[in-house]
Amino acid sequence: MSEREVLELLRENARYSTDDIARMTGLDEQEVEAAIEELEATGVVRGYQAVVDWDKLEDERVRAEVELNVHLDRETGYGDIAERLARFPQVTALRLVSGDYDFDMEVEGDSIREVSQFISEKVAPVPEITQTVTHYVMTSYKENGIELGDGEDDERLSFSP
């Protein structure tokens, strides 16, 4: 059960210190460390990353959501195609989804040209892929549960009864 609690806190903020997680959960530090190790060892936690608001940076970052339709045959399943696509570092997320298309793929690059080239030269030619529809991200409002607006100031009085 302690792993569940620790996981919840890491999902909220992966930079919480072990000490602080211990204080918040009533576990001791060794228990928290053991829980994190267990989460990592079993592959429940696959990594830790920053949630970035690219609009705040000078450098351009181009992201696209790509819808992929595929044609399966006896030798090739969704998993095979996914494995092939996921190996490209440009692909930041890849999910099989229900609905009008098969894969929902997120791609990142330094320019529209780079991303377009990647789709047209590396993705579209994959024999099983029958169609790609690329949507470039124009503005992001929320990432990983975090709103990217300017936030609201705390308007509360410093003392209230």
Binding site: L157, S158, F159, S160, P161
Partner: peptide, 13 residues
């Protein structure tokens, strides 16, 4: 630079 722990209301909206 005051941090207030004197507030009798939630910080959530």
């Amino acid at each position: 630079d005051v941090i207030s722990l004197g507030v009798g209301e939630p910080d959530f909206a």
